[in-house]
Design a protein around this nucleic acid. Structure first.
Lengths: 181, 181
DNA sequence: TCGATCATGTAACAGGTTACATGATTTT
DNA sequence: AAAATCATGTAACCTGTTACATGATCGA
């Protein structure tokens, strides 16, 4: 359900083609919602059928046609309605934690390697987020509301990554050395 | 993919019926992996077909039959193989953060209420986790490996909930007062 | 010339949710 | 007497993933 509203929100910010949207999801929205281009095109099709977005096909000489979408009034209303409805928290589903429940079947050395990879992963994310924060949200208090809200989402990404790193400090200690006991 | 290994891990710990498994997923595994009873029965069926688990039906006088499953050797091997394979991080998909991206369409008062609910939610979780920690993992260093690993998963739940509460401190400030600007 | 990126899709499948079904036992 | 919990499922649907398809342009 939420994908369609993520699309509406993104298009409400700026009209865009499917391709441009899929880029935004990969970059600016990566810490918010993930979606592949296939999913995006499919959902855009449905939104179009239902009249929540509309599109003009702009033919281009010697280039494939552009097909930018924008939100209709109906779409904006639907978005507002959804926004006002409290959403349940997403379910927790983490394969890494499943592994920790496997107990004696778990090989310590393999797990130690995986945790090292994880640390790298979250270190990279954290650096990327902090870069964005430093360049775009320098002085949050003076920002217009829109950007303050986006900053809040970014903050969530930052705190999340920091917490994973702190957890890794605990976890790697448990897997360090000779995997004793 | 991971659900089947969560089931194998749970059954490897202790054999159980579908019903008992769905209870464990709701309680002890809630911070690790969520699964409904429908999903569990379906997956158990597949695992049985593929010979990774086996079951005896135990008829009971004046009660519905019990059908406890346990992991076979094939199952245990499959579990070990999966455990040794690094898993990609799950994609981020949070409707709450989507809302923050909707910018000017977002109603501040409604959001403030939702955030208040969230705070309650994570406060409850945190208390529950800490209770479990205090009663079952009093002295982690002396615990056998199995339980140290489960403790690590619980720690992840605790740190996660604490972080949400800290984020809420930042977020609620932004939505407090008269939703100005 | 080869691979990457631009640009838009279709099709099949796997995983997860919602709704429905049934019947006994225990608690309020 | 009604509601919750025990206990086991089926069916339809929605969402997300993987694989495939096509063709142009641009930089190494």
């Amino acid at each position: 359900m939420a994908l369609r509203y993520a699309l509406l929100a993104a298009l409400n910010e700026t009209p865009a083609t499917g391709y441009e949207l899929s880029q935004r999801f990969r970059t600016r929205l990566a810490h918010v919602w993930n979606a592949s281009h296939q999913q995006i095109y499919r959902e855009l099709g449905k939104l179009h059928e239902e009249g929540l977005v509309s599109a003009e096909t702009i033919p281009q000489a010697d280039k494939p046609d552009r097909k930018p979408y924008h939100v209709t009034d109906t779409g904006r209303t639907a978005l507002r309605t959804w926004l006002a409805t409290p959403q349940p928290r997403p379910a927790t589903r983490d394969p890494l934690l499943v592994k920790l429940f496997a107990g004696d079947c778990l090989d310590g050395a393999a797990m130690a390697e995986e945790l090292a990879g994880l640390r790298q992963h979250y270190r990279n994310r954290l650096r990327a987020y902090r870069d964005i924060e430093a360049t775009w949200f320098k002085d949050p208090a003076t920002l217009p509301r829109r950007y303050r809200l986006q900053h809040l989402a970014l903050r969530r990404g930052i705190l999340g990554a920091e917490t994973w790193l702190r957890w890794l400090d605990e976890a790697q200690q448990a897997f360090s050395g000779t995997d004793a006991d």
